[in-house]
Simulated assay, not measured.
Amino acid sequence: MSKRINKESILRASEIKQQLQIEDFEKEISALKKEIYAHSETPSQGDSSAAERTEVLQRYESELGFLKDELDFLDRIDTDSEISEIGMGAVVITDKKNFFVSVSIEQVEVNGIDFFGLSTKAPIFQVMRGKKSGENFDFNGIHYKIKDVY
């Protein structure tokens, strides 16, 4: 790739995307809590919808905690380190997609270029880990050529 996108810009875009997800979950949790606790009467044992809403609330709160942990993780990534092989904090430019090895984030756009946040727990990372510019890898029947790693 002739012109590299600044890694700090990719990280900041990833943090913003993560923060927006956190805010969405917080809004959903707040609305769900209002719905659950708005009724002054105690639901009967046969009221399965209240139990289902409470279960959903617990799942949302758990996911919110996970998202906050990932945001904290993003905050600890060193964007100044020199990286020549695929590992944590690497930007990976391939002929198919561009990745930012960090946490699982759908996609962020920086200067008109899309980057996909990639967790080190993702199966594709296990295949590409340790590879360098100019190398290739295959995942799910797709062949990738690595153009740049930084």
Rank of each mutant, 00 (worst) to 15 (best):
Ala50Leu: 03
Leu64His: 08
Phe100Gln: 13
Val108Pro: 04
Ile113Glu: 14
Thr54Trp: 03
Thr120Trp: 01
Glu63Asp: 14
Leu74Arg: 06
Asn111His: 13
Val110His: 05
Ile77Met: 04
Phe66Met: 15
Ser48Cys: 00
Lys121Ser: 06
Asp78Leu: 04
Lys96Tyr: 14
Ile29Asp: 06
Asp78Ala: 04
Phe116Asp: 00
Ile105Val: 14
Leu32Arg: 08
Arg53Cys: 03
Thr42His: 02
Glu85Asn: 12
Phe66Leu: 14
Asp47Ala: 13
Ser48Glu: 15
Glu41Ile: 11
Phe100Lys: 07
Ser102Met: 02
His39Val: 10
Asp78Trp: 10
Lys27Phe: 03
Gly46Phe: 00
Ser30Asn: 09
Leu32Phe: 00
Ser81Ile: 04
Ser84Val: 06
Ile93His: 11
Ala38Cys: 02
Ser119Thr: 06
Val92Pro: 09
Glu52Thr: 07
Met88Asp: 05
Phe115Ile: 13
Thr79Arg: 09
Ser119Gly: 07
Thr79Val: 14
Asp114Phe: 11
Gln58Cys: 07
Phe99Gln: 00
Ile83Thr: 04
Phe115Thr: 13
Met88Pro: 07
Asp75Thr: 09
Arg53Lys: 14
Pro123Trp: 01
Val101Cys: 11
Lys96Ser: 02
Glu26Asp: 15
Leu32Thr: 13
Ser84Arg: 09
Glu23Ile: 08
Asp72Ser: 15
Ile77Asn: 06
Ser62Glu: 11
Leu74Asn: 10
Ile124Pro: 02
Ile93Tyr: 13
Glu106Val: 08
Ala51Arg: 11
Glu52Gln: 11
Ser81Phe: 01
Glu70Ile: 07
Ala51Gly: 13
Glu23Trp: 02
Ser48Asp: 09
Phe100Cys: 14
Gly65Asn: 11
Tyr37Leu: 15
Ser44Glu: 11
Asp95Cys: 11
Ser62Val: 01
Ser104Tyr: 01
Pro43Cys: 02
Leu118Thr: 07
Thr54Glu: 09
Lys27Gln: 09
Asp80Asn: 14
Lys96Ile: 10
Ile113His: 05
Ser62Thr: 08
Leu67His: 12
Lys68His: 06
Thr94His: 10
Gly46Glu: 13
Leu32Pro: 00
Ala38Thr: 13
Tyr37Thr: 15
Ile86Phe: 00
Ile86Ala: 09
Val101Met: 09
Pro123Arg: 02
Phe66Cys: 15
Ile93Arg: 08
Asp72Thr: 09
Ile105Asp: 04
Ala122Tyr: 01
Ala50Cys: 01
Ile124Cys: 10
Lys68Gly: 11
Glu23Arg: 08
Glu63Ala: 04
Ser84Tyr: 00
Ile113Ala: 05
Asp24Asn: 14
Ala31Thr: 07
Ile124Thr: 12
Gly112Lys: 02
Ser30Leu: 04
Gln107Leu: 08
Gln58Ser: 15
Glu28Leu: 07
Tyr37Phe: 15
Val103Glu: 08
Leu67Asp: 00
Phe66Asp: 15
Ala51Gln: 12
Thr94Gln: 11
Arg59Met: 10
Ile124Lys: 03
Val92Arg: 02
Lys121Asn: 06
Asn111Tyr: 09
